[in-house]
């Protein structure tokens, strides 16, 4: 699975990395970065889907 972050849409609300710190962290400028997670694949997928749903900028797209 891949997570695409659209930096033109993202306005750094921070919702993804504060709600799902197990898969995202704040990068230097405030944009999210995907981090290594030791959760199993299904859990990662579930967290990523939740993050995409709550993103107020609709800047996260999942490639399943």
């Amino acid at each position: 699975m891949k997570i695409h972050i659209d930096k033109t849409k993202c306005y750094m609300s921070g919702e993804c990395y504060y709600n799902h710190p197990e898969i995202f962290k704040m990068g230097d400028e405030g944009y999210p970065e995907v981090i290594y997670s030791d959760l199993d694949k299904n859990e990662i997928k579930q967290h990523a889907q939740e993050a995409a749903e709550v993103c107020p900028a609709t800047a996260l797209k999942l490639e399943l």
Binding site: Y11, M12, S13, G14, G30
Partner: peptide, 8 residues
Amino acid sequence: ENRSGRYK
């Protein structure tokens, strides 16, 4: 405001 405290 942004929860991250960072702005475009």
